[in-house]
Simulated assay, not measured.
Amino acid sequence: MNISYRTILLVIALALALRGYEWVRYDHRMPWTPLSMAAPIGPFTTRKIGGLAEDTPFCHALLEEAAIRYSPLPPVKAGPDCGYDNGVALTRQKSQLDGIRYSPAARTSCPMAVSLVLWEKQIVNAAAFRHFGTTVDEIITYGSYSCRRIGGGQTGAFSEHAQANAIDIAAFRLADGRTVSVAGHWNADDERSRFLREVRDGACELFSTTLSPDYNKAHEDHLHFDQARRGGSRYCR
């Protein structure tokens, strides 16, 4: 059978096109592929996390996919601007090995919990091992849910904390017992400050808002993360 050179090129082109179609269809970096806890952080990860606010069952499934112990929280309603109906608590204990503990326990919206787990797994522990040769055992926070306005004043827009859609990170306790705090080590000019800046920069790829001491004096002792609904856009400082 005589097969022309043109036919061979056509078959090769078709095979490459089909392979490209499969890549585009399933690649985690594409906006239409579902969020996966196993996939690296991509350009549309924040937008996909934002979509979890309308799909709590899938949000729970993602935490289960990552083998994360969590407990759904009862809905909270505290006026027109405060409360949540998709809250979860990350229920890790010191003897468990499925992730970093939060002190106090992280009680956030489910999308925030997914964001935190991705941040821990893909950014925090990698940075800790790179700078300290160990992992993070505990993250100390100033809490998540709080029915208050931005800046804590009596007027103005309500904070993302008012919907359990934010968390403030104060310090990291390493597995070897050392503690790295935002207040004490942000400007230390050593591996501690480099670690803090690396986990801040990594958070910028996951959260809609990431604020640090570089933003203003109100954030000199913590990192603020939230998932404000911005259609995938981010603010990092």
Rank of each mutant, 00 (worst) to 15 (best):
M1E: 08
Y5G: 11
Y5E: 15
Y5P: 03
T7M: 13
L9W: 10
L9N: 08
I12N: 04
A13V: 08
L16A: 14
L18E: 08
L18H: 05
G20N: 14
Y21F: 15
W23Y: 15
W23Q: 13
W23T: 13
R25C: 06
Y26F: 15
R29H: 08
P31T: 07
P31R: 09
W32K: 07
M37D: 02
P40S: 11
P43Y: 02
G51R: 06
G51L: 08
E54H: 09
D55Q: 05
T56I: 10
T56R: 12
T56H: 09
P57C: 09
F58Y: 13
C59P: 01
H60R: 12
H60Y: 15
L63V: 10
E64V: 09
I68M: 12
Y70E: 00
P72I: 03
P72T: 05
P72M: 05
P74W: 04
P75L: 02
V76T: 02
V76C: 00
K77D: 10
K77A: 14
K77C: 05
A78P: 02
G79P: 05
P80W: 00
C82K: 01
C82P: 02
G83L: 06
G83R: 00
Y84N: 11
G87V: 09
Q96A: 13
Q96I: 10
Q96W: 14
L97G: 12
L97H: 13
L97Q: 14
G99P: 01
R101A: 12
Y102I: 03
S103P: 04
P104M: 06
A106G: 08
A106P: 07
T108H: 03
C110S: 05
P111A: 10
P111C: 11
M112K: 11
A113I: 07
S115I: 01
S115Q: 09
S115K: 04
L116G: 04
V117F: 00
L118N: 07
W119A: 07
W119K: 10
E120W: 02
Q122N: 12
V124C: 07
A126Q: 15
H131K: 08
F132H: 05
T134I: 13
T135Y: 05
D137N: 05
D137T: 00
Y142A: 14
G143W: 00
S144E: 02
S146W: 03
S146L: 10
S146N: 13
C147P: 01
C147W: 02
C147Q: 04
G151F: 06
G156N: 07
F158I: 12
F158E: 09
E160N: 11
E160W: 01
Q163W: 07
A166F: 08
D168N: 08
I169T: 05
A175E: 15
D176E: 11
R178V: 12
V182N: 05
G184S: 15
A188T: 01
D189M: 11
D189C: 04
E191S: 12
E191Q: 13
R192E: 13
F195G: 03
E198F: 05
E198N: 04
V199R: 03
D201N: 14
D201C: 07
L206M: 10
L206T: 08
F207W: 11
F207G: 06
S208Q: 03
D214H: 13
D214T: 15
Y215H: 15
Y215V: 06
A218Q: 14
H219Q: 15
E220I: 15
E220A: 15
D221Y: 12
A228P: 01
A228D: 04
R229C: 03
R229F: 10
G232A: 06
S233Y: 09
R234W: 08
Y235I: 14
R237I: 04
